[in-house]
């Protein structure tokens, strides 16, 4: 298959047809911050944190396919500020009290905020009223922390393809609903996968949490994306 040539942040890169800009960048050791994206899942393009400029126009790197000759900018001060603003929006939209979260230290939202050096969001807290739901004998849904990335919607299905998690309502009222019957029927592996796939502490497998001591969690020592950058 023909190779595609493009430049990312001034660096000449090659990519395979069908790859996204995010994938091409990663293969070239360039980390584009991303949140809703999850390797192997159809990207939802919902968080927009991977926004880059492609030939001067904004596009989400996780959904935008590569093409010959593209000039991609990923790290201009303007883009970095916007990316950070999106992370900050998520922190004020939901209720993210990290000290009491099972996912703290392993949370991708928090990790991005750390990477961006967020000390306080620029936006006022919204104190939205959300609930905590026991959705099955195995799973808890902590809606306060859900960032509506839709990974669970896409990934967690019954063997016959029905969705266990589904987006409901719209606008700021959007929430991820859980089908109680289907959730109750989830086997242990799928339930654990649901917790693992959730970037934040919204899907919780009951009776686990805080298992890894502070200091040894995924993002305690090195920033999210550093594995890509040091390759």
């Amino acid at each position: 298959m023909a190779e595609i040539k493009l430049t990312i942040d001034g660096k000449p890169c090659t990519a395979r047809p069908g790859q996204t800009i995010l994938e091409a960048a990663k293969a070239s050791g360039i980390y584009i911050p991303a949140l809703c994206h999850y390797e192997g899942l159809k990207p939802s393009g919902s968080c927009r944190i991977c926004t880059v400029k492609v030939n001067g126009r904004p596009a989400a790197a996780c959904t935008q396919p590569v093409a010959e000759g593209l000039v991609v900018e990923t790290a201009t001060p303007e883009l970095e500020d916007m990316r950070r603003a999106l992370v900050e929006m998520l922190f004020v939209e939901g209720n993210h009290f990290c000290p009491s979260c099972e996912k703290s230290g392993n949370c991708e939202l928090q990790a991005l905020a750390y990477r961006f050096g967020m000390l306080v969001p620029r936006f006022p807290y919204q104190w939205s009223v959300r609930e905590i739901e026991s959705v099955s004998p195995r799973l808890l849904m902590e809606h306060n922390r859900c960032i509506q990335c839709r990974r669970c919607v896409e990934a967690i299905r019954t063997p016959d393809g029905r969705r266990v998690f589904a987006a409901q309502e719209r606008s700021g009222r959007l929430r991820i609903g859980v089908d109680p019957e289907l959730a109750a029927g989830l086997d242990e592996d799928t339930a654990r996968k649901a917790m693992a796939i959730c970037p934040v502490g919204a899907i919780l497998y009951k009776e686990v949490g805080f298992a890894v001591p502070i200091g040894r969690r995924k993002y305690d020592r090195s920033p999210i994306g550093s594995d890509i950058e040091t390759k």
């Binding site: 922190f91 209720n95 009290f97 990290c98 000290p99 009491s100 000390l119 306080v120 969001p121 807290y125 104190w127 939205s128 009223v129 959300r130």
Partner: peptide
């Protein structure tokens, strides 16, 4: 200087905010 989560974002006491 706002020191700590409670000063910065309300913290644990703010769990009542909803």
């Amino acid at each position: 200087v706002a020191v700590g989560e409670c000063a910065v974002m309300g913290g644990l006491p703010a769990l009542r905010n909803g």
